[in-house]
Amino acid sequence: EALLLQRRRVTVRKADAGGLGISIKGGRENKMPILISKIFKGLAADQTEALFVGDAILSVNGEDLSSATHDEAVQVLKKTGKEVVLEVKYMKD
């Protein structure tokens, strides 16, 4: 459990079709971090076996998301290339 509370760096390699394969919720306007709300089976994020629903995305390719709005986070995630480095931390409810 202590492991979950540490920052983790996960590299996601996207397939030619399909994006990261995650849905996010939260954002500055909700006074919440950007959280992974869904991981789609078989897509890139799922294949890492290292990302979990409830993980907060702290940064994407080094771009800090700690004070991002939901829309800003969506845009940052959309413009990523084939390889995406996510810094995440599991957030307890």
Rank of each mutant, 00 (worst) to 15 (best):
E1T: 08
E1Y: 06
A2P: 08
L4V: 14
L4H: 12
R7G: 09
R7I: 11
R7D: 06
R9L: 14
V10N: 04
T11I: 14
T11H: 08
T11Y: 07
T11W: 09
V12S: 00
V12M: 08
K14S: 09
K14L: 11
A15R: 11
A15F: 13
D16W: 09
D16K: 13
A17W: 11
A17D: 15
A17P: 13
G18S: 11
G18F: 11
G18R: 11
G18V: 11
G19V: 08
G19S: 15
L20C: 05
L20S: 00
I22N: 00
I22Q: 01
I22G: 04
S23F: 10
S23P: 02
K25S: 15
K25I: 12
K25M: 12
G26Y: 03
G27D: 05
M32T: 14
M32C: 06
I34T: 03
I34N: 03
L35C: 08
I36Y: 03
I36H: 02
I36P: 00
S37E: 14
K38R: 13
K38W: 07
K38N: 13
K38T: 09
F40V: 12
L43W: 10
A45T: 06
A45G: 08
A45E: 05
A45M: 05
D46N: 06
D46T: 05
Q47V: 09
Q47G: 08
T48H: 06
T48E: 06
E49M: 09
A50I: 04
A50R: 11
L51T: 01
L51E: 02
F52W: 07
F52A: 08
F52D: 05
F52P: 02
F52N: 11
V53Y: 02
G54V: 01
G54H: 06
G54S: 04
D55N: 01
D55S: 00
A56F: 00
I57E: 00
I57P: 03
L58W: 04
L58F: 12
L58K: 03
S59N: 08
S59L: 05
S59E: 15
S59Y: 06
V60H: 02
V60L: 05
V60Q: 01
V60I: 13
V60N: 03
N61M: 04
G62N: 08
G62W: 01
G62E: 07
G62D: 11
E63C: 13
E63H: 14
L65I: 15
L65Q: 02
L65N: 01
S66R: 14
S66W: 06
S66P: 00
S67Y: 13
S67Q: 10
S67L: 12
S67N: 14
A68W: 00
A68Y: 11
A68N: 04
A68F: 08
A68Q: 06
H70R: 11
H70M: 10
H70L: 07
D71I: 07
D71N: 13
D71M: 09
E72S: 06
E72K: 10
E72V: 07
L77W: 06
G81S: 11
V85A: 09
L86S: 09
V88Y: 03
V88E: 00
K89V: 11
Y90W: 08
Y90C: 13
M91S: 12
K92R: 12
D93E: 15
D93G: 08
D93W: 08
D93T: 09
D93N: 08
